[in-house]
Design a protein around this nucleic acid. Structure first.
Length: 208
DNA sequence: TATGCGATATTCT
DNA sequence: GAATATCGCATAG
């Protein structure tokens, strides 16, 4: 399942172009499963295969864009393929990919990745040794990938340190469920994940 | 494995 | 004051 080490190194990463991204949060959330997110930092390259996402589409009461543009959520209104990073619960950063046209708020929360490169660096910043706990959950993902407010608003489709790449291996079956940890608009099935992947967050029932 | 709870800071009412 | 797109630790089964 894991395409680690040599097999991965032999696969050249191809940067995703903005034109390839669907212009819709729900479609983009499904599309991003299996794609790769990369953060090039001074110490090396951090990368991981996206295995879990959540969509926060236009008009969603649970979405941060719902009440209009503010200093906090401004980058959520950038054209699709930009990073929207914010801080919650006094402890965690969340990394989102914007999904709509410029001026319209909508995005996809990256909830979990399967670490590929820079695993030693991730373990250092997370102070965790278990591979499956490294980036399983949005807060952990951001910490492992060294993402914080400095990356808010970055263009993930331009030449830069934080970017998206095409899949290096075919994704398995994609499951969907209700989103996790929110109280508004709970019923909608806007969470997507790769079935059976051990790096997906949530209870067992939400990983099958 | 599942459930419960406290910590923490920014935003919203 | 209350809520929050969460995490890590504790405890029980």
């Amino acid at each position: 399942m894991t395409l680690g080490g040599d097999a991965y190194q032999r696969t050249r990463l191809r940067r995703l172009r903005r034109a390839e991204l669907p212009v819709d949060a729900v479609e983009l959330a499904r599309y991003l499963i299996g794609k790769v997110v990369i953060h090039d930092v001074a110490a090396g390259r951090l990368s991981g295969r996206i295995v879990e996402t959540e969509a926060y589409p236009i008009g969603d009461p649970a979405g941060h864009a719902y009440s209009g543009k503010t200093p906090r959520n401004g980058s959520l209104f950038l054209t699709r393929g930009h990073a929207y990073v914010y801080f919650v619960y006094g402890s965690s950063f969340m990394l989102n990919v914007t999904s709509e046209v410029r001026g319209v708020g909508g995005g996809v929360l990256l909830r979990a990745i399967e670490p590929l490169e820079g695993i030693d660096l991730m373990q250092r910043s997370r102070a965790v040794t278990r591979l499956t706990d490294l980036a399983r959950g949005p807060g952990r993902l951001a910490e492992a990938m060294q993402v914080n407010l400095e990356q808010d608003g970055l263009d993930l489709c331009a030449a830069g340190p934080l970017w998206l790449a095409a899949a290096t291996q075919k994704a398995r079956a994609i499951g969907k469920s209700a989103r996790i940890g929110l109280t508004r608009n709970v019923a909608r099935q806007w969470r997507f994940y790769e079935r059976g992947n051990p790096y997906v967050s949530g209870p067992k029932k939400l990983r099958e």
